[in-house]
């Protein structure tokens, strides 16, 4: 499924996380997501962009407007070349954190999206993809 539009944004600082949120909001509006759905995907984006920053040494967020011919949606990809996640099931568990967080980012982002996947290899990096359809 080829994206309709695609924005590539580097995430190296907390200000970049703010910029990603703003761009996701703009694209969600364009796709026509409801206010609640916009809020959900922007919140998920905030969690995943911050994880790249906190645990992945920074990375790249790709924001895509996608269409399957019938409906449109927003697909977000977060890519980093950090240490990776050794135990994905554990990382997804609410309350689990290896830093000082609340441990709600990954599990929460999964609940806030219609599609969600984590692809990670220890030592190579992490890719988290999430999508929300109209």
């Amino acid at each position: 499924m080829a994206p309709v539009t695609s924005d590539r944004m580097e995430v190296r600082s907390s200000d970049d996380v703010v910029r990603v949120r703003q761009q996701v909001r703009a694209r969600a509006l364009e796709v026509g997501l409801s206010l609640v759905d916009q809020t959900k995907i922007v919140t998920a984006a905030s969690e995943l962009a911050r994880n790249m920053l906190d645990y992945g040494g920074g990375g790249v967020a790709t924001i895509e407007v996608v269409s399957d011919g019938i409906r449109r949606g927003l697909r977000l990809v977060f890519d980093d070349q950090g240490p990776g996640i050794a135990d994905i099931q554990l990382a997804l568990k609410d309350g689990f954190t290896s830093g000082g967080g609340l441990g709600l980012g990954l599990g929460g982002a999964k609940r806030l999206c219609n599609e969600f996947s984590i692809d990670s290899k220890p030592g190579e990096g992490t890719r988290v993809t999430c999508a929300r359809w109209k």
């Binding site: 206010l35 609640v36 916009q38 809020t39 959900k40 919140t43 969690e47 609410d94 609340l102 709600l104 599990g107 929460g108 609940r111 806030l112």
Partner: peptide
């Protein structure tokens, strides 16, 4: 707190 934020917070688990 905005209603959409409240709904999202609950789903986030906060």
């Amino acid at each position: 707190m905005r209603p959409a934020v409240a709904i999202t917070l609950v789903e986030l688990g906060l």
